[in-house]
Every structure is written in structure tokens, then in C-alpha cells.
Design a binder for these strands. Structure first.
Lengths: 227, 227
DNA sequence: ACCTGAACACCGTTCAAGT
DNA sequence: ACCTGAACACCGTTCAAGT
């Protein structure tokens, strides 16, 4: 009954913004940033490229909406807990896992400054920072530190995933190849990278991410005590 | 005498990779990521687009080389000091200032995982982490935390600069407009962002960046003591 | 009001032809 | 060995014509 009005045209239902965003997410998940083209999108939606512009303003707008849908999911899954540190860690790991599952989100966040998806992240982080007891004058700097770290790691992960895809290799192969290159570096010019090459192959991205969050949280908590 | 062999053709000197990279940096500085096209580059170098491919493999290769030149400059300017914390802060600020002066570098670093420019950053950070006295098993996580933070902030700054350029606005105008949007948010759904809107307009990016570095350094130093 | 799809103005890259 | 520049295979976006 509710959908009676819809099936008037050749297509199953009228084109909607949500439908376009969903198709865009699917294309991005399958083919990365290069996988989303208006040609592929129009084909998938059984329409012409021009029709899409009746619902979105530009490709940038579309990618922002796609990234926003992913981030909104993480936001909805936030932990209701008495421990602010746990809540912050939980949200940060939620973002990490979401970007791990949808690597293009990491790159997308880098191209939409101040827009809804980033606003959601800052909001979640900011609420936890407040719950942590950070005084008003330290809120901004504390929230930005965590925010920048989350987005920064996301961007790196996106870059790694894109590189692996472009070379048609998996993560292990890319890391093994990179570790070999690093280990072959001149130990005088690159003492750290040369010696750390083997750790590159065996490290756990998620654990490293959490370790960084913890460093920042420790720093923030210590700064509260110092005031 | 040394250049006798060169001026045999119509152009002043033969095309070289360094010359191409220098021209690319200039175009990127003037017009951002969109300013670097093979058409503009060929015009600037008084040649055809095809000639450039005799010296570089692709546009990705060229942007990586351009970013590497900027990062190499920061690396060369590293502080020789007894205080490892100062050295780390100094290098991090050097990267911040370089990306502030050449915003496209922030975006470029996000597209060249494991490549020379990022390797230089990790190496500089890693050396300072070692000098800080971090035990071997904590080196990787500590260095990655600082590295990810530096690159993450760089990416955000690049995005902000690109947005301002695209809208033909300056930083203050963009921030004022964004602050207004944030302040108009629903205080129930976005209590943090809504209340922090005014700080967005008056904040100091460089000071915030340094505050974040300090949080991480405090966390790392505390973790050394805990072992 | 929305869809259609050809056309437009680009883009990075290739390559046969030159020197 | 390197340069030249037309040609190629794309791309996002526009718009007159339809319904």
C-alpha cells in the first residue's frame, strides 16, 4: 500500500538520495576510491549519469554522505558506561574497525573538513573528554589531539589498503616487501627504520592504534592533575 | 664550459628530473593539488607532456618526489640537542610549519604509504624516541603514535587549506562560517560541538598541534617509568 | 519534477614520428 | 636517448530534450 505510488516508472522505485548513497558505498567497498564513477553508479542504478545530479550536488557531496553513513553507524554504537576512558577507547576502536572494513572512509575524511562526518567524530570524542573531567580551557586541545590521531591513523590505513589494492597484493605481501626494503636501508642514514624493518612485518595495527590512544589519554589525565 | 654540451637544443638546458620536481612544487604551491597538471607542467617547462615521462613514472611518482623534497628540508634542519623531548617537539613543529607553508604536502603524504617522504618522518621520530630512552619493545608503538599524529594533523591542515582555496576564502572567513554553523547545532544532539563553536574561531592550530605532541610525549615517558 | 543520454571540457598516459 | 604533440581512454558535469 505504502509503495503503491512508486512503481509507476520502468525502474523498481524512484531514485532517492539514500539509494544513491547506498550504491556508492557498495561501489567504494568493492573497488576503493577508483571504483566510484558516475558511469558505474548510473549503471548500478539503471539510470543515466545526469539523473544522479537531481539528488546530490557533486561527487564530493556524495563521498561525504557515504562516509557520514559509516561514521553515523559507529556513533550509534557508542558505549554507555561510567568509565569515560573506556568510552573513549571504545569509540576510537569503533572508528578504527569501521575504517578497516571500509578503507575509503579514511581518505574521504581527509577531504571534508568541518563537515558532518568529522563533526560526529569530534562530538563523540568531545563528550568523552568532558566526562573525563578535563577543565573547560583544556577541552579543545584535548579533543583535537584525540580527533587528529583517529583521523590520521584512518588516513594511513586507507592509503595502505589502496596501495595493496592497486598492486593486487594482500596486506602481508605488501608489508613483507616493505620490510625487506627498510631492512636494506643504510644503517648510518636510517638507523631506526633499518633496525625496525622486521617489526613492520609482525606488528598489529589495531594494538598500535590503541597504544597511541592510551599515550594521549595518559597525557590528558596527567594534565588534569597538574592544574 | 661545464654547460657547453647543454645548449644544443631550443630549450635553455636539457630536461632533468630535479627541474621537473621543482616546477611541480611551484605549481602545487600556487594552485594546490588541482594546480598540478601535465599540461601546465609542460607549458612551464616549454616542452610537451610526453617528454616528462622520460624522467618520471607517473603523477603519483612526481607528487611523492615533490613531497620528499619538502620533508628532506625539514629533516636537514633537525635540532642537535641533548634534550630528546626538545628534539622531538622541534622536528614535529618543523613538519607542521612545512605543511602549513605547502599544504598539498599533507594530502600527498596520505597517498604514498611506506615511501621515502614518510620514511624520513618515521626515521626522525624514531631516533628521538630512542634518545628518549624508550625500551626496544616499546619503540615501534611509541614512534608510530607520534608519526600518525604528525601525518594526521598534516592531512587535516591540507584539507582545510584546500577547502579555503576552493571557496576563494581565507582561513578566518572559513572558520567564522564554520563556527556559526557549529554554534547553530542542536545542543541536545551536539552538546560539545555546539558549545565549542566559538573556540573554533579563536584557536591557534600550531599551539593545539604542540599540545597534542606533548600529551603523547607525557604518555610515552610515563610508560617508560612504568616498566 | 524528474529522467535521459549525448555532449563538453577536462584529465593522465601512450606512442609513432621526429631529432 | 630524448623530445614532440596528436591521439586515446577515461573522468565529472551540464543541458536540451523528453515524460
Amino acid at each position: 500500500m505504502a509503495e503503491k505510488k512508486r512503481k509507476v516508472r520502468g525502474r523498481e522505485a524512484a531514485l532517492s538520495r539514500d539509494q544513491i548513497v547506498a550504491a556508492a558505498i557498495d561501489l567504494l567497498d568493492r573497488g576503493g576510491e577508483a571504483g566510484l564513477t558516475f558511469k558505474a553508479l548510473a549503471e548500478r542504478l539503471a539510470t543515466g549519469p545526469g539523473a544522479i545530479y537531481n539528488h546530490i550536488a557533486s561527487k564530493t557531496d556524495l563521498v561525504a554522505a557515504a562516509a557520514d553513513a559509516i561514521v553515523a553507524d559507529v556513533q550509534r554504537g557508542r558505549l554507555e558506561t561510567a568509565d569515560a576512558e573506556d568510552a573513549l577507547r571504545n569509540f576510537a576502536l569503533g572508528m578504527f574497525d569501521a575504517i578497516d572494513a571500509h578503507p575509503w572512509v579514511g581518505g574521504a575524511l581527509m577531504r571534508v573538513p568541518g563537515q558532518p562526518p568529522l563533526l560526529r567524530i569530534l562530538e563523540a570524542v568531545g563528550q568523552d573528554i568532558r566526562a573525563l573531567g578535563v577543565p573547560a580551557e583544556g577541552e579543545w586541545a584535548s579533543a583535537m589531539a584525540v580527533f587528529n590521531y583517529i583521523v590520521g591513523v584512518g588516513g594511513q590505513n586507507a592509503a595502505n589498503a589502496q596501495l595493496a589494492r592497486a598492486q593486487a597484493l594482500d596486506r602481508t605481501e605488501v608489508l613483507t616487501s616493505l620490510a625487506h626494503t627498510w631492512s636494506s636501508l643504510d644503517p648510518v642514514e636510517y638507523p631506526f627504520a633499518q633496525s625496525i624493518g622486521t617489526q613492520l612485518r609482525t606488528h598489529d595495527d589495531r594494538a598500535d592504534f590503541l597504544a597511541g590512544i592510551n599515550f594521549i589519554v595518559i597525557g590528558i589525565v596527567a594534565s588534569i592533575r597538574a592544574t
